[in-house]
């Protein structure tokens, strides 16, 4: 433990303090250990059942025999396209909303409170309702049909609450002095925002985006009704495309004898997530923004 030097026993008579200190440290290490252990358990479980099925042809081939043979090439492509649509709609929308909620509106104003309340409720809408809604609104009313576009748009509605909450926090966490300094330099509000606040908030923004990528990748019910079930290689955003999570669900719950392939596809999904997270961290580092937000001070 590299950071124990900051705990300085003040007086020998304060043994209750020390006990409390130790108990706290113990519980937090225990909790963190538990989180990591359970996740390791799940991951190992998935890999044991799935890794043996994975090879290059599994990653690029077409789906055959309902997924029991062949690969998942078209499905990976569809998943990436759906994710692309989701992020390109939801990220700008939620950052703009977060700006409104933090920088523009008084947080106790009627509008801000109304928007927040709506977002909280939105987070509680069951994913299957999102799916049925997306089906009625995007695929039928807007005439987008079963398509990657419909799926991506439905998912962007779905990740809005997470993205906006985390973006709000990210912007709020930028120290006040940054703003004061910018104001002293005579920068306009928008310049301050784009030159000072957003770059400073970037690592925390990225954490929110990564969280919602996870949510989008994990979603099944909302996509069955919107981006659909077609496992062909999509030619445009207007084509229907099956996502990895839909494929996993189908193999695990619907296709007899599809279990091993379901786990293999789950391994690919986790690997994709790792690659995305790693790339985000690298990009942030490359932009000189630090890889993670940290409170500092106590190290």
């Amino acid at each position: 433990m590299s950071s124990t030097q900051s705990v300085k026993p003040t007086r020998s008579g304060q043994s209750t303090h020390t006990i409390r200190e130790l108990t706290a440290a113990f519980s937090i290490w225990l909790a963190a250990g538990l989180v990591m252990a359970i996740l390791a358990w799940i991951l190992i479980d998935i890999s044991i059942r799935g890794l043996s099925q994975i090879n290059l042809s599994f990653l690029i081939d077409d789906v055959t025999d309902a997924g029991r043979s062949g690969g998942i090439g078209p499905i990976i492509l569809s998943t990436i396209l759906i994710l692309f649509v989701t992020l390109s709609v939801s990220v700008p929308l939620s950052i703009a909303t977060a700006i409104a909620l933090t920088e523009q509106l008084n947080s106790e104003s009627l509008l801000a409170r109304y928007v927040r309340r709506c977002l909280d409720i939105l987070a509680g809408v069951p994913s299957i309702v999102f799916g049925l809604f997306g089906n009625a609104f995007f695929t039928i009313t807007l005439g987008l049909g079963y398509s990657i576009l419909s799926g991506g748009l439905t998912l962007s509605c779905m990740v809005l609450p997470i993205l906006i909450r985390t973006a709000e926090q990210a912007i709020n966490s930028v120290p006040l002095e940054h703003r004061h300094a910018a104001a002293a330099l005579g920068m306009s509000r928008s310049t301050t925002l784009f030159r000072v606040i957003l770059p400073a908030a970037a690592p925390a923004l990225a954490a929110g985006i990564v969280l919602s990528i996870g949510r989008a990748l994990a979603e099944t019910a909302a996509l069955i009704f919107t981006s659909g079930y077609v496992a062909r290689t999509p030619e445009s955003l207007f084509d229907s495309g099956r996502s990895l999570s839909v494929h996993i669900y189908d193999l695990a719950m619907n296709v007899p004898n599809g279990g091993a392939r379901a786990y293999a596809a789950a391994c690919v999904l986790v690997a994709m997530l790792l690659v995305i997270n790693e790339t985000t961290a690298l990009l942030l580092k490359f932009a000189g923004l630090g890889s993670t937000p940290h409170a500092g001070g106590c190290r």
């Binding site: 009625a136 609104f137 009313t141 807007l142 005439g143 987008l144 049909g145 576009l149 962007s156 207007f238």
Partner: peptide, 22 residues
């Protein structure tokens, strides 16, 4: 279901930029 065709239109424009009927 969505009795504001205008709202639907604006939404779709903002969200997708362009769309076509499949």
């Amino acid at each position: 279901l969505f009795p504001h065709p205008f709202l639907a239109f604006i939404l779709s424009l903002l969200l997708t930029g362009c769309f076509r009927n499949p």
